[in-house]
């Protein structure tokens, strides 16, 4: 459904994204993961046709975004980082306007349908200005959905929301993902990706550093942190000697970090107990991979 080939965007001297290559199949839910400024939003904006690429090309449904932006825009629904809302309009009149300019076949019916689907029925008559942030985000999603696009591009759909609202938005996106819709969403919140996505593309400084199925990517990789009461030089080699342990780093006096390709918490505990094990915590797969790949200090 989406093909991206050698996509590059340069702002002056800075390279925002550097020769990105990826594909998304129809019906797939792909998470774009990366630290702020990695190029997630830039890539998404190029896919929507709002921004031109410096070189390379992007195809949506086989149509080149640059050559035929109008046809591509008809296919996609896009929620930018800050939802594009006319706050002086009511929810219903705003969505009706969106349905019209996006060329929905029957704007009125499309609006009523999306209002119910996104759970806006109770506020449909209210001014957007008077809505809470959670509802505004829903209106933003409704706007992206109103013309029943085949591809949905969501830039941080749950940013700035409280945990309960996050959960609601997540459930909403999951519902959409169950259908035939292709979804690309960006986030820097890992649980969101784990809850929603079939596949993850991790980008860092404009390059793809990993792109794989969620299960394979996260795999069984684990980072285990331990702290012991009586650190000893013998502990380090003992930990390293364990099966499937790749690396052990000493973070501070008596504190170690064990990187392993499998869940070896039990074995690590067994080794560490004689040294006075005080604490042991494991980080699950994706988070570990993400932190390694994006080089963010944890």
């Amino acid at each position: 459904m989406i093909q991206v080939e050698k996509l590059t965007k340069r702002y002056g001297d800075t390279l925002a994204i550097d020769a990105l290559d990826f594909e998304v199949q129809q019906g797939e839910v792909v998470g774009f993961l990366g630290p702020n400024g990695a190029g997630k939003s830039t890539t998404m904006r190029i896919l929507t046709g709002a921004l031109g690429a410096t070189s390379g090309r992007a195809l949506i449904g086989g149509i080149d975004v640059y050559e035929n932006p109008r046809a591509v825009k008809q296919l996609i629904g896009y929620l930018p980082e800050s939802p594009p809302l006319y706050v002086d309009m009511t929810v219903r009149s705003y969505l009706r306007f969106c349905a019209r300019i996006k060329g929905a076949a029957d704007p009125k019916a499309a609006v009523e349908q999306v209002v119910h689907r996104v759970g806006l029925a109770s506020v449909a008559h209210r001014l957007i200005d008077h809505l809470s942030k959670g509802f505004r985000q829903r209106v933003g999603i409704a706007q992206a959905l109103v013309h029943e696009p085949k591809v949905l591009i969501l830039d941080e759909p749950a940013s700035g929301l409280d945990p309960a609202q996050r959960k609601e938005i997540r459930e909403l996106v999951r519902e959409l993902a169950d259908g035939d819709t292709t979804v690309i969403l960006s986030t820097h919140v890992l649980p969101e990706v784990e809850a929603l996505c079939d596949r993850v593309i991790i980008i860092r400084e404009g390059r793809i550093v990993a792109s794989d199925q969620l299960a394979r990517l996260g795999g069984d990789a684990t980072a285990i942190r331990i702290s012991v009461a009586r650190p000893d030089d013998a502990l380090l080699p003992a930990l390293l000697g364990l099966h499937q342990v790749d690396e052990v780093t000493r973070e501070a006096e008596g504190r170690y970090r064990v990187h392993a390709s499998a869940d070896v918490r039990e074995q690590v505990a067994a080794v560490a107990v004689p040294y006075g094990l005080l604490e042991l915590s494991g980080q699950r797969g994706l988070e570990e991979v993400y932190l390694q790949l994006t080089g963010e200090p944890s």
């Binding site: 929507t48 046709g49 709002a50 109008r70 046809a71 825009k73 008809q74 996609i76 896009y78 930018p80 800050s82 939802p83 594009p84 809302l85 006319y86 706050v87 969106c98 300019i101 996006k102 060329g103 706007q143």
Partner: peptide, 14 residues
């Protein structure tokens, strides 16, 4: 200011 230009720029209108 309201970031609504993004809506017009990504809708199928010229």
């Amino acid at each position: 200011r309201q970031h609504t230009m993004e809506l017009l720029a990504t809708s199928p209108v010229s």
